[in-house]
């Protein structure tokens, strides 16, 4: 089979364990001074790419990519500490964010420049919950796609992917080039060891700006407002099972 040139896009997001707060102007979620991490689904993508290399598949290169504020470089260093060979960072002004379509357009150019033949993305980022970028990239490149992957196997030129669907799993077979998006069951990402974190500091990190790309990434959506979800009214605690049944009847749930 041909050598694998893997591209792994990663996103810096508010840490999954942090409860987001909405700003006073109701225009966005507060991000200043909030703990950020790599999007959990993207950790799975890096891990899978590294495991392909560890399975002795002909992995030529694993390139991590991120479009985001200057601090997104930290996320790329993490990806390199986990095993990516180098990083590409497209700096986006703090406070601005690309939409999935814009990211997909950038990625299309990166794929062409890097001659990537496998892109592994997270199925969704846990901030905007869009679940779009991988599919959009596949559409722009006219490549096959295998989304929500829970198992990936290579056999010669064939890639078999088991994917999570409503009610169970389905298995697809495709050939490279291919887009894969990761589901939580795909693997368990490793922790970067201290020596690997030190080594990652020396790995190449290319810095780019939007001006280096020809893609039109202007936003199509305008945020009108961001608000708190309606709070649920405080409930009651009951003493025993009879109390629970009684209360459920009272609420019309039984």
């Amino acid at each position: 089979m041909s050598g694998l040139r893997i591209l792994v896009p990663v996103k810096r997001v508010i840490d999954y364990a942090v409860k987001p707060r909405i700003n006073r102007a109701n225009t966005a979620v507060e991000t200043a001074g909030v703990k950020h991490s790599m999007n959990p689904f993207d950790e799975l993508s890096i891990e899978e790419a590294v495991r392909l290399r560890e399975r002795k598949l002909p992995v030529e290169e694993i390139v991590a990519f991120s479009a985001g504020p200057p601090k997104a470089q930290d996320i790329l260093r993490t990806a390199m500490a986990m095993g990516a060979d180098r990083g590409i960072h497209v700096t986006i002004e703090e406070g601005k964010e690309l939409e999935p379509l814009g990211v997909a357009k950038l990625l299309k150019q990166v794929v062409q420049e890097e001659k990537s033949n496998l892109v592994i993305l997270g199925k969704q980022s846990i901030d905007d919950d869009a679940n779009q970028t991988g599919q959009m990239l596949a559409g722009l490149l006219n490549w096959p796609q295998a989304t929500q992957a829970s198992k990936v196997t290579f056999e010669g030129d064939d890639v078999t992917v088991m994917r999570e669907v409503d009610g169970g799993v389905e298995t697809l077979k495709a050939k490279l080039p291919l887009i894969i998006t990761t589901d939580l069951r795909l693997n368990e990402p490793r922790y970067a060891s201290l020596p690997n974190i030190m080594k990652a500091k020396k790995k190449p990190l290319a810095k780019k700006t939007l001006a280096d790309f020809e893609a039109d990434v202007s936003p199509r959506l305008k945020t009108l407002k961001v608000t708190e979800p309606p709070p649920r009214k405080g409930g009651v605690k009951v003493e025993d099972v009879d109390g629970m049944i009684g209360k459920l009847k009272e609420l019309g749930a039984l």
């Binding site: 869009a130 599919q135 959009m136």
Partner: peptide, 20 residues
């Protein structure tokens, strides 16, 4: 699963930013 898999690909082909 079907809509999530398919529609963003359609949106990209139409140069439209999907709303999920």
């Amino acid at each position: 699963a079907f809509g999530k898999n398919l529609l963003p690909r359609v949106a990209a082909m139409l140069d439209s930013q999907q709303i999920s």
